[in-house]
């Protein structure tokens, strides 16, 4: 009886250790151990063979960039789609995957990351604590509102700026000095 209890306890401890190991191990997804496939519903599925040769099929995976700004193509975390979904593995470099896979992953990244880039600033008007922006982005024309003060327009590296609007959307200005002098003057007040 006592023994049985001890065995159970060991079991649980072993289980826990496995969970921890699972969390901390780095698994790389390569062209060889994975098959990505478009699903009918507009997502991507994955059949992954892990280090022990075990095959597992995921009907939908979601992809996260580890370095969305500084190194967008490398270290793509492929995860189960739910909010606290596990990481299935990392794609070390998207450019080392087959063209077909790369395309699929890029599509999914596009779906996950909504990051319009401001191409042209038509006007910025400020009124009572908020500034109202009218811009053209690579995703089309758009108007949005930014709270004044605080750090809603901020720099992430040389001449590269992000703008957060009051809804939580984020717009990117990749290079301030690629804008016209008039546009820079409009922006001057906020950066």
């Amino acid at each position: 009886m006592l023994n049985e209890h001890a065995v159970k306890e060991d079991d649980i401890i072993a289980q826990q250790k496995k969970v921890v190991e699972d969390i901390i191990s780095v698994r790389l997804i390569t062209e060889e151990n994975s098959v990505f496939e478009r699903t009918e519903g507009g997502f991507v599925s994955l059949e992954f063979t892990d280090g022990n040769g075990e095959k597992k099929f995921y009907s939908r995976v979601s992809v996260h960039q580890c370095f969305p700004y500084s190194d967008p193509d490398r270290y793509i975390s492929v995860r189960e789609p739910d909010r606290d979904g596990r990481e299935i593995g990392l794609i070390e470099d998207l450019n080392k995957m087959s063209k077909k896979t790369k395309e699929m992953i890029l599509e999914q990244l596009e779906l996950r990351y909504f990051a319009p880039v401001i191409i042209k600033i038509r006007s910025i008007r400020d009124e009572y604590g908020y500034s109202y922006w009218d811009v053209i982005t690579d995703k089309g024309p758009c108007r949005f509102t930014v709270r004044m003060g605080g750090s809603n327009v901020y720099s992430i590296g040389k001449n590269r700026y992000l703008v957060n609007d009051i809804d939580g959307n984020r717009f990117e200005i990749p290079d301030l000095y690629k804008l016209t002098a008039r546009e820079i003057k409009l922006l001057d007040l906020y950066i």
Binding site: T39, G41, F43, S59, R60, R112, Y113, F114, A115, N169
Partner: peptide, 17 residues
């Protein structure tokens, strides 16, 4: 999602965008 959202229908365990 990041700075946006998507609406999905789950039908028989498979997701549709």
């Amino acid at each position: 999602e990041v700075n946006g959202g998507i609406l999905i229908a789950r039908q028989d365990g498979s997701d549709r965008l």
